[in-house]
Measured scan of single mutants.
Amino acid sequence: EEDDHMEFCRVCKDGGELLCCDACPSSYHLHCLNPPLPEIPNGEWLCPRCTCP
């Protein structure tokens, strides 16, 4: 299965362990989110761009 998510964080543009949005190709480091997440959430996760009205 091919993964179309970005291979770098949308905020800092660095690679590493990234959290991928379930609705778009964006990826983020947990510490780059505002507010930062302490751990990878269970289940579906939507990035700030997808949850913003």
Rank of each mutant, 00 (worst) to 15 (best):
L46V: 11
L19A: 12
C21E: 00
S27Q: 09
F8E: 08
L18Q: 04
A23W: 10
L37C: 05
M6L: 08
C21M: 00
E2G: 08
L19F: 11
L30D: 11
V11D: 13
C12Q: 00
L46F: 14
C52N: 15
H5V: 03
C47P: 00
P35H: 04
C12H: 01
S26D: 12
C21T: 00
H29P: 01
C52P: 14
P36Q: 14
P48S: 11
L19P: 00
N42C: 12
E2M: 02
Y28N: 02
S27R: 10
E39Q: 11
C50I: 01
C20P: 15
C9I: 00
P35M: 06
K13H: 05
P48K: 04
G16K: 03
P48F: 15
K13P: 00
E7S: 06
D14K: 08
C21G: 01
C50D: 04
S27N: 12
E17M: 08
C24I: 00
C24V: 02
C21R: 00
E1I: 15
P41I: 07
H31S: 09
D4Y: 15
D3W: 05
C52W: 07
G43M: 04
P38T: 06
D3S: 15
P48D: 15
G16E: 15
C24A: 02
I40E: 08
M6W: 07
P48V: 05
D22E: 13
I40H: 07
H5P: 05
P35D: 05
L37D: 13
P38E: 02
F8K: 04
S27L: 10
N42R: 10
D3R: 14
E17R: 06
L33N: 00
G15L: 07
P36D: 09
K13A: 12
M6Y: 04
C47Y: 00
K13N: 13
G43Y: 07
N42E: 11
C24Q: 00
K13Q: 05
P25E: 13
L19H: 00
P25Q: 08
L18R: 09
Y28F: 11
G16M: 05
K13C: 12
P35G: 07
C52M: 12
E44V: 08
V11C: 05
P25I: 10
F8L: 12
H5F: 13
E7W: 05
D4M: 15
E7G: 09
R49E: 15
P25W: 09
I40T: 14
C47T: 03
L46S: 13
P48L: 02
H5E: 03
H29G: 01
D3A: 12
C24F: 00
C21S: 00
N34G: 07
C47G: 03
Y28M: 05
D22N: 14
H31M: 09
T51W: 04
A23E: 15
P48Y: 07
P36V: 13
E2I: 15
E17I: 08
T51G: 10
D3K: 15
C20V: 11
C9N: 01
G43C: 08
P25K: 13
C32S: 00
D14F: 07
E39M: 08
G15P: 08
R10Y: 12
C50G: 02
C9D: 02
D22Q: 14
C32M: 01
C12N: 01
L46Y: 08
R49A: 11
L37I: 11
P25V: 12
I40D: 03
P35W: 04
V11Y: 10
C12R: 01
G15E: 06
D4S: 09
C24M: 01
Y28D: 04
C52G: 12
C9E: 02
W45M: 03
W45C: 02
P48E: 15
S26R: 08
C9M: 00
C12K: 02
C24S: 01
D4R: 13
H29I: 00
S27A: 13
P25A: 14
C32R: 00
L30Y: 11
F8N: 12
M6H: 05
H29D: 01
M6F: 13
H29C: 07
E39S: 14
H31N: 14
C47A: 03
E1A: 03
P41E: 13
D14N: 09
D3G: 14
D4I: 15
C9Q: 01
P41G: 13
W45S: 03
K13W: 05
E39I: 08
C52A: 13
P38C: 02
G15I: 08
C21H: 01
L37P: 08
R49P: 08
Y28S: 02
C52E: 14
L33V: 10
P38G: 08
C52D: 15
C9R: 02
G43V: 11
C47N: 05
L37Y: 08
T51C: 14
C12D: 02
P36N: 02
C52K: 06
E39R: 05
E44L: 07
E17D: 05
K13T: 05
L33T: 06
E44G: 10
E7Q: 04
E17Q: 12
L30E: 07
G16Y: 06
C9F: 01
P35V: 07
L18G: 02
C9T: 03
G16C: 07
L18T: 09
E2L: 10
R10G: 10
M6C: 09
P41D: 15
K13S: 05
E1D: 03
G43K: 10
C52Q: 08
F8Q: 07
D3H: 11
P35S: 06
H5M: 06
S26T: 11
R10C: 05
L30H: 12
N42S: 13
E39N: 14
W45R: 03
W45V: 02
W45A: 03
F8D: 08
E44T: 12
M6D: 06
V11W: 06
P36W: 06
H31Q: 04
G16P: 01
H31V: 05
C24P: 01
L30T: 13
F8R: 10
P41Q: 10
D14Y: 03
I40W: 02
G16I: 07
N34T: 06
D14P: 00
C21N: 00
L19I: 15
N42K: 07
E39K: 08
F8P: 05
E39W: 02
L30I: 11
P48G: 06
N34A: 11
E2Q: 06
E2K: 07
P25L: 07
L37R: 11
D3E: 14
L18F: 00
V11L: 08
E2W: 04
D3I: 15
S27I: 04
C21D: 01
T51M: 05
E1V: 05
E17A: 09
C20M: 11
C21L: 00
I40G: 09
Y28T: 03
G16S: 11
E17G: 07
E17W: 03
P48M: 04
M6I: 12
N34Y: 07
P36S: 11
C32K: 02
A23N: 08
D4Q: 13
L46R: 10
L37K: 06
C47D: 02
E44W: 04
L37N: 06
Y28I: 03
I40C: 14
R10E: 10
P38F: 09
N34L: 11
P38D: 06
C32P: 02
L33W: 02
C50Q: 02
D22R: 13
F8C: 05
E44K: 14
A23I: 03
E44S: 12
S26G: 10
R10W: 06
K13M: 07
G43A: 13
E44F: 04
E2P: 06
P36M: 10
I40F: 15
H29N: 00
K13Y: 04
P35I: 07
M6E: 07
H5W: 06
P36H: 06
N42M: 08
